[in-house]
């Protein structure tokens, strides 16, 4: 069980890194949209986050990111 969780966490982190590494390509197809990514593949997209979540079978275990050209400076 714990090994499965560890693998799931590593895959989840890898998917977030994949989005960052492929941002240029993703912008061409998914600009201003939320995307869901599993194992380095976009499995769904939607301009509306709630719309995307309503279709995903397991949003709690899926990498979800917003693809945009708008820079967001975060001072947290």
């Amino acid at each position: 069980m714990k090994e499965q969780l560890t693998n799931e966490l590593l895959a989840f982190a890898a998917d977030h890194a994949w989005v960052n590494e492929n941002l240029g390509t993703l912008l061409e197809q998914y600009a201003e949209q939320w995307i869901a990514v599993k194992n380095g593949q976009v499995i769904d997209s939607d301009p509306d986050l709630i719309g995307l979540l309503s279709r995903l079978p397991d949003s709690a275990h899926t990498c979800i990111e917003f693809i945009t050209r708008e820079p967001l400076e975060m001072v947290l």
Binding site: E8, F12, A13, H16, T62, L76
Partner: peptide, 19 residues
Amino acid sequence: PYFAMHLRSTYFQGLIWLL
């Protein structure tokens, strides 16, 4: 810098990506 974690409680569970 980001970390991944799994959260679990009585009411929910899932993966979170945190700064």
